[in-house]
Amino acid sequence: MPKFLVRTLAVFILATSFAFAQNGRVAVMTPYLASATTRIMVDEVETALQDLGYTVDVIDTAGDLAALDARIQDVILQDVDAIVLSANPELVPAAVEAAGAAGIPMFGLDAGSLQGLTVDVTSNNYAMAAQTATYLVDAIEGEGRVLMLVHPPYAPVQKRGAIARAIFDNTPDIEVMDEVFIEVPGPLENARNAVEAVLTANPEPGSIAGIWAAWDEPALGALQAIESLGRGDEGIVIVGLDAIGPAREAIVGDGAFRATVAQDFVGIARTVAGVVDEALQGDDVARRTIYVPAALLTRDDLR
């Protein structure tokens, strides 16, 4: 057993010990790498920082915030030069505080809060949710029952749900029939199952006018549910958010999925990499939130 361990470790150490810092070492920490959008941002920030001459460690804790807290403590003890955090810093306050005490700057990659960070680069979730909710209201001519697919434990998504709900509640002839909690991981399948259940419980054509999803994966799940139950000709309008590849493809088709919002994930990641580089090169970096603009993408835009 000990021999096995030593050999196994030796293989991995040899494989990883060739990397060395040139400009410095940056740890990119997230519990959400399984999310398609986080993956895009993390991959991009990793590439951008490597291009700038940094050694980058990407650490994912698979949804586990306690493990995120622990791994941040680990990289602090290793004296990394900077930490990029793709999670709300308010959920790991001890680690953020420890980084501050150790003099290691932290930068938010769509973190959603500036607490303890030097800079957070993100999209404006309130604005994006307003774009899709308003589009949905217009598409169903301000009338009918709307189903919301939400995930409030993740703060940026919670913000989206709050603003969309406010817009629907402020439209007199729209009734929010339910806010369905979509579990993560597995948002697409969970949303499909949930929407199938709602459709089955509401068999009359026209009983559901629209489905507002807080991000694209549940929207795709809703689309699958509508198609699998043969309800695609009822004019139900689905909107998502994030403009991931499969969502763009679905919107271009003739199905119910009609619009999403393209966050500039590459822009967010490159902005973070640039700010990290500025700070580590000794430039003064003002503490602030940087919002990268996002665009509504409809079927007409994509075609």
């Binding site: 196994t8 991995f12 990407v58 698979a62 680990d74 990289v75 003890l77 290793q78």
Partner: peptide, 24 residues
């Protein structure tokens, strides 16, 4: 978990390695 992070071993490799050690 602590040592493998310090050795900069990929998170997913860490998970596999930990599972292998437990099963072993």
């Amino acid at each position: 978990a602590n040592g493998l992070t310090q050795l900069q071993i990929d998170t997913y490799v860490q998970q596999v390695l930990t599972g292998v050690i437990v099963v072993g």
